[in-house]
Simulated assay, not measured.
Amino acid sequence: MGSFDGEQLGQTMVFDTKADRDAWVSDEHYESGDLHREAIGAREARASIIREVSGTNSWARLCDRYDTPSEVKRSATMVELLAAWRAEYGERDE
């Protein structure tokens, strides 16, 4: 999810399986021939999740566990980050 003038384009969505994610992406409705859904790589997903949970209660708990925000960014597992994201946002609908 890139940005335009500092504004995030899109939102993070979490899927139980890669097949579920791929089905969601392929169910794209074209608007003037432009795709709007895409799967992003793990590095970009991690950065997006960190950006979204920063400043939340879940982020504070991760910082307590890892001592500093930079250590959370460096060492927290995706499982921990996803748990924090789900605790804050639950499952988002389209």
Rank of each mutant, 00 (worst) to 15 (best):
G2Q: 09
G2Y: 09
G2L: 11
F4W: 08
F4D: 06
F4T: 08
D5A: 07
D5V: 02
D5Y: 00
G6I: 03
E7Y: 12
Q8C: 07
Q8L: 12
Q8I: 12
Q8R: 14
L9H: 06
L9E: 06
L9R: 13
G10M: 06
G10I: 08
Q11Y: 13
Q11G: 07
Q11T: 14
T12F: 11
M13C: 15
M13D: 09
V14S: 00
V14D: 00
F15Q: 00
F15M: 04
F15C: 02
D16S: 14
T17D: 08
T17S: 15
K18P: 15
A19Y: 08
A19I: 10
D20T: 04
D20S: 13
R21Q: 08
D22N: 07
D22R: 02
A23C: 06
W24L: 05
W24A: 06
V25E: 05
V25P: 00
D27M: 03
H29G: 12
Y30I: 13
S32E: 11
S32C: 09
S32K: 11
G33I: 03
L35P: 07
L35I: 10
L35M: 08
H36W: 12
H36I: 13
R37I: 07
E38D: 09
E38C: 11
E38Y: 11
I40C: 09
I40E: 08
I40Y: 07
G41R: 07
A42E: 14
A42Q: 12
R43I: 09
A45W: 03
A45D: 01
R46Q: 00
R46M: 02
A47I: 11
I49F: 10
I49T: 11
I49Y: 10
I49R: 10
I50M: 11
I50L: 14
R51T: 13
E52W: 03
S54C: 10
G55L: 10
G55M: 10
G55I: 10
T56H: 08
T56L: 12
N57Y: 08
W59L: 06
W59Y: 07
L62Y: 03
C63W: 01
C63I: 15
D64M: 09
R65A: 14
Y66K: 12
D67Y: 05
D67F: 04
T68L: 04
P69C: 01
S70Q: 10
S70W: 07
E71L: 15
V72A: 02
V72E: 00
V72K: 02
K73N: 06
K73L: 06
R74P: 01
S75F: 14
A76W: 04
T77W: 05
T77P: 03
T77G: 05
T77E: 05
M78T: 02
M78R: 00
M78W: 02
V79S: 14
E80R: 08
E80W: 09
L81E: 01
L81Q: 00
L82S: 00
L82K: 05
A83C: 04
A83E: 07
A83G: 05
A84W: 06
A84G: 06
W85H: 13
W85E: 03
R86C: 02
R86N: 02
R86I: 04
A87H: 03
E88R: 11
Y89H: 04
Y89L: 00
G90A: 05
G90H: 05
G90E: 06
G90S: 07
E91K: 15
E91M: 15
E91R: 15
R92E: 15
